[in-house]
Design a protein around this nucleic acid. Structure first.
Lengths: 258, 258
DNA sequence: TTAATAGTGTCTCTGAGACACTATCGT
DNA sequence: ACGATAGTGTCTCAGAGACACTATTAA
């Protein structure tokens, strides 16, 4: 019995189907809070939102008009939600070839007034300098960066408050539990630059204390010294540059100490 | 401008919509390979599959008939995919109140011959004794457990080979990186029972070597001794019982050693 | 007593953490 | 010389790993 035969009998209208399938993207970037010469950097984790236009491209009133929302849009049948997220990120921010990852599905009944709409949430990590050419499009009248500490007090569209809260939790974990911090940093970086990135999501003393962290970085299996290469961009005394290397991480909780 | 006004203008048919929204569940269980009195257990990680019927409930030829597949089904508009997974697990295996977690979305074009069908994949952990009352239903002519080492050589429906491969990778990581191992164990367990569960997914010497693991279990912050309570179910000499306790795990890769 | 599993005493080695110290450079 | 950041020397303490040893029970 072949699938072809079965398909002749299959009634695609037998089940109620969703009214839409979308992708949302939480675009994170790290912006320097202050940059002074010969000073270690201080950073702040930001998320990019768009403000929904009052009217759509055909001049009709828009859903959730005027509210802040994650960039995103409808998935095309010829692509996956992940493809769609990549495409929309390119269209809406002009950035390409950046770290993008799926982190959740939002399908609670009633989450979107337009009907039964399922959204796949992704997070993206974009170095701030790549975000310079960002611009508003049809649906978005404004594009803006918000510090993660303040973003949840905005008037947010749909269930995006929930998605953003989850996204922030995910990126905080990912920054500490994986090597994605490298996506925020230049290829070669100083210990204080890595430290500044990590301090946007933790206050842990092992990271916050200079001497401890300076020592630690040398023993991390996924970071290596760039032999003989230094910079003075963070201090007067030349400081060692490091880079990330691929390494197997054994994250078992049954090994060594927690 | 209110959403009500906008809704009057909204055309729900503007975008092509999916032809279906489903949930799949990779049900894992651990079966004792051999149980002898006064012996430490040897375990094997299994996954539960159903064999798709040749005909559907109305007697017509079924899609992917005769192939092995993950249990699952169509999501109802009044529930989330997660709710649906829990409901279907209850219907198809009779088990309730077990550990269930979403781990991926499968939406590649062409993954299902019936059309544009999006599936949410979940894994479930079910102690074997709860799976006793399992039984076939309309769509499934048989229900069977397969060791994870052999399951991928079966003739699997749709893209379930891919989903199952991902599920196995996920549960292997979860067993070592979180405390879900407790879902496979009785409330109070011996070190060798925990060891047997972990050895289904790793050969690491820190876990495989009795003396090392016996020492280690005492220092794990998420496991505590059940004071003064022992059992002889795994040996002649009475052995200490342990239980899991809630504990904060700091899994940062920038802490201590990897 | 033997066989099998459970558990301990103790040594070594490594690495984390703390503190005081030194190094380098622009101003 | 001073101030600011980068980096080291060294001590202590905790814990991982290895090995030999002891403990408990059924048969």
């Amino acid at each position: 019995m072949s699938n072809e035969q079965a398909m002749q009998h299959y009634d695609v209208t037998k089940y109620r189907t969703p009214d839409g399938y979308t992708s949302d993207i939480a675009v994170f970037t790290i912006v320097p809070v202050k940059v002074e010469e010969f000073k270690p950097p201080v950073m702040d984790l930001n998320i990019m939102l768009i403000r929904r236009s009052m009217t759509d491209s055909e001049g009709r009133p828009n859903i959730e008009a005027g509210k802040w929302a994650l960039p995103g849009g409808f998935v095309d049948p010829s692509e996956t939600a992940f493809d769609s997220a990549r495409r929309e990120l390119k269209e809406e921010t002009g950035v390409d070839r950046i770290h993008l990852e799926h982190f959740g599905v939002y399908d609670a009944p009633g989450r979107d007034p337009r009907g039964w709409i399922i959204s796949n949430a992704h997070y993206a990590i974009v170095p701030e300098h790549k975000l310079s050419q960002r611009q508003a499009n049809d649906d978005a009248s404004e594009v803006e960066l918000f510090p993660v500490q303040r973003v949840l007090s905005l008037d947010l569209a749909f269930d995006h408050a929930r998605i953003i809260r989850d996204a922030i939790r995910v990126i905080e974990r990912k920054l500490l539990e994986t090597t994605v911090a490298k996506e925020f940093l230049p290829e070669e970086f100083t210990y204080s630059e890595l430290q500044a990135v990590l301090l946007t999501v933790t206050n842990d003393s092992a990271i916050a204390l200079d001497s401890a962290f300076r020592r630690k970085i040398k023993s991390l299996p996924f970071i290596e010294e760039v032999k003989g290469k230094t910079t003075t961009r963070t201090s007067k005394r030349p400081t060692q540059l490091y880079r990330f290397v691929d390494a197997e991480l054994n994250k078992s909780i049954y090994h060594s100490k927690i």
